[in-house]
Design a protein around this nucleic acid. Structure first.
Lengths: 201, 201
DNA sequence: ACCATAAAAGAACGGCCGTGCTATTTTGCG
DNA sequence: CGCAAAATAGCACGGCCGTTCTTTTATGGT
């Protein structure tokens, strides 16, 4: 329960904006009652990050792995990720995006954990992409690392355009960019015919 | 001088992490000496943002506008923007990226100013893209808004991969993604021949 | 019902925060 | 120089911070 409240708060004010007193208030407990469950504030922050990772795996990765392999799984990862950004339990946006900006120049266990988690998430996208190549959904010469990079880039942009700029077209833009990437990765005959007719989507 | 130090600090610890005492320390002044120049901390934060905008225009936008129109200007904007992310005066990364994560759910003048600045920056990219279409460098049916969105997305990803993940390939990845976008936007004959031979870049 | 154990609360600490206030120092103009 | 004005410093205030300590309350097994 404490971690649930803390995660929601961290999503709004960031990991460094988390304060034990504020967590105590929303949890309906005393400051000491909260603190007794953690060795330090950094420990609380780390457990909050771990909680976020568990939820990300549960909401984004696992459902995609339960679906069909190949391009559908790549699509599922993308769509689940978009939904993740909108989760009502994360009113302040993706905690990883927030933490990335806070931690990218502060070495320590928090940053180390976040980096390893981000690499795992990217690895999941890369693996799904590689499978799509093996299944023949994507061309054999697709650079799977680059593809995952480009998809991730689109996700980051969606978070930015949707949350900061309140752009109502953010989802459309993200999906159009994604469809463009999928299009370029598809097998050659698809690519040429599409190139001769209309832009992606 | 105060704003110079404050901007460098904000780049590291964020706008909310800025503290007048810490600024005073690095500026070699007293807390009151600093505070006397600002109405409030929020005023300081706003002036820091304004300073960052001035610098961004000076380092990224103006040099690109002084160069040739069309695709070269789009390229210049992109490259200058990449360089901006590495500026030694911004040791903690782009202040706008950091501020975006902090402010995306905190209404107020700070957020308003950041949003308007981000829209201006995007508008600059859109305008440069539109000119590239007019000059015949890009196809006439290129969606300039989408193109600018995709370029911005690549820039955000570069910031993320380079600063958080320390990926030595971040610059390569960003440029490959950018070249892919340019490639897709080029006139039709280029597009088809390239599609028949090899992937972008 | 008892009691060991765990959970929560309460109070206190030094520290830094933003912000006013009053003094002191520095600056630039005549 | 002399002097007004601006810049900086010093100090104090209430407030929240993370953390430690002690005390109270709740829990669960026999």
């Amino acid at each position: 329960m404490i971690l649930r409240h803390s995660l929601a708060m961290a999503s709004r004010v960031g990991l460094h904006g988390l304060s034990i007193g504020a967590v105590a208030k929303v949890a309906g407990m005393s400051k000491s009652g909260i603190f007794a469950h953690f060795d330090s504030k950094e420990d609380l922050q780390l457990q909050v990050l771990q909680t976020a990772v568990e939820r990300f795996i549960e909401k984004v990765v696992m459902p995609a792995l339960r679906g069909p392999r190949g391009e559908p799984r790549v699509r599922a990862l993308f769509e689940n990720w978009l939904d993740w950004f909108e989760a009502r339990s994360l009113p302040g946006g993706c905690p990883f995006v927030g933490a990335a900006a806070e931690l990218d120049d502060r070495p320590g266990p928090l940053r180390d954990y976040l980096v390893s988690n981000q690499k795992d998430a990217l690895a999941a996208m890369i693996t799904a992409t590689r499978i799509a190549v093996q299944e023949g959904h994507f061309r054999a010469d697709v650079d799977v690392d680059q593809f995952a990079h480009d998809v991730y880039s689109t996700l980051l942009a969606y978070h930015h355009f949707s949350r900061l700029l309140d752009d109502p077209l953010a989802a459309d833009r993200a999906r159009r960019a994604f469809e463009g990437l999928i299009h370029n990765a598809r097998s050659t005959e698809f690519r040429v015919t599409a190139a001769a007719t209309a832009p992606a989507h």
